[in-house]
């Protein structure tokens, strides 16, 4: 008779694998990718393809030739980083910018720490922030690009907002000494428009509904817990609401704050990155609140119009502390000297 296997329990394994989880994230990102392709056309496709290909290539090359071990690109995590990086770029960005971003994201933010699971900061965000700081003009150039179906958006106020995100317009306007009501009067920022699809913004943040569909998918598949995104949303809403009540002419209303910029993309896909988010639910809530607060602080009092990336990166640094001090609720009282 052939030899039996003997091993410690448990003898069966659940269906989840790193690869299946990453595939679920990619599926959840599909609506946002589709909207950006539909809306930004060829330039969005270029960004996405360049992002994915260069991230996977960089990871493969580093593991194969520098770390000299079996490449783990099959786990699909580099693909997720590539997509997220591409979705965080302005649609008019040149392809080589994405390649530089990928090298920084995978090479510096991920591989130098030891690869998947070891990195302290979200690779896609490190890539994006690196580009934002190094190529500020290219990274804030929200020039209009040709949509795939040119006729589809002719009704929108394309000319009125060409070139800048709503947040940048607000920041610029406030800088000129205008009041918010004046700015809003000049521009068409209806919530409905922002909810479904709007013009200014990076590839992934143009449609709130597409991102929310992805969020729902992740929750249904139990890929992420809702704590981090909900904590961020609630904090942004409450904190910006307080500021708005204090001075509606100086601070934008909470709904505007929620729907603009990268809040949705960041909260749903970047802040919930497994590796760089806390392990316990208590930690997750604190982490989410931190991101929300920092985002609004940067938006309303900092010099950048947008603060989600910085907020998430800052909170990434706090995660080890949160893991150390926010322990899950244990079962049963502890008995001393038991």
């Amino acid at each position: 008779m052939k030899n039996l296997i003997v091993s410690p329990s448990p003898h069966i394994h659940g269906p989840k694998s790193t690869r299946s989880l990453m595939t679920d994230v990619i599926i959840a990102l599909a609506p946002a990718m589709l909207v950006s392709v539909w809306y930004f056309g060829v330039s969005a496709i270029t960004l996405l393809v360049t992002g994915v290909v260069s991230c996977v290539a960089v990871e493969y090359l580093i593991q194969r030739f520098l770390m000299k071990k079996e490449p783990s690109v099959k786990d699909c995590s580099a693909i997720v980083t590539g997509i997220l990086l591409a979705l965080n770029m302005p649609p008019a960005a040149p392809w080589w910018l994405v390649v530089i971003g990928s090298v920084v994201a995978i090479g510096i933010a991920k591989m130098t720490f030891g690869g998947i699971g070891q990195n302290l900061f979200n690779p896609a965000l490190v890539g994006r922030v690196f580009l934002l700081v190094s190529f500020p003009v290219l990274m804030t150039n929200y020039a209009q690009v040709d949509p795939l179906f040119p006729g589809a958006f002719s009704g929108h106020a394309v000319d009125a907002v060409s070139g800048a995100t709503p947040l940048a317009i607000v920041k610029e306007g406030l800088g000129k000494g205008m009041t918010l009501s004046q700015i809003f009067a000049e521009n068409d920022f209806s919530s409905a428009q922002m909810f479904f699809v709007r013009i200014g913004g990076s590839a992934g943040e143009v449609s709130a509904i597409a991102l929310l569909i992805g969020f729902a998918y992740l929750l249904v598949r139990k890929v992420i817990k809702p704590h981090i995104p909900l904590a961020i949303f609630a904090t942004v809403f409450v904190f910006s609401g307080i500021l708005w009540l204090a001075d509606p002419e100086r601070y934008a209303d909470p709904l505007f704050n929620l729907l603009t910029g990268g809040i949705l993309l960041g909260a749903i896909f970047m802040a919930t990155d497994y590796v760089t988010s806390p392990m316990s639910t208590k930690g997750m809530v604190i982490y989410g609140i931190g991101i929300g607060m920092l985002t609004i602080l940067i938006r309303d009092f900092g010099s950048y119009p947008e603060g989600v990336s910085f907020a998430i990166l800052i909170m990434n640094a706090v995660v080890p502390l949160l893991n150390m001090y926010c322990k899950p609720k244990r079962f049963g009282k502890e008995v001393k000297n038991g």
Partner: peptide
């Protein structure tokens, strides 16, 4: 002669606890 296959964490302790 081997009589069974081991499929678990690489540790003599774990192995000896099993069989």
């Amino acid at each position: 002669t081997a009589v069974v296959e081991y499929d678990g964490t690489a540790s003599c302790m774990a192995k000896s606890a099993l069989y």
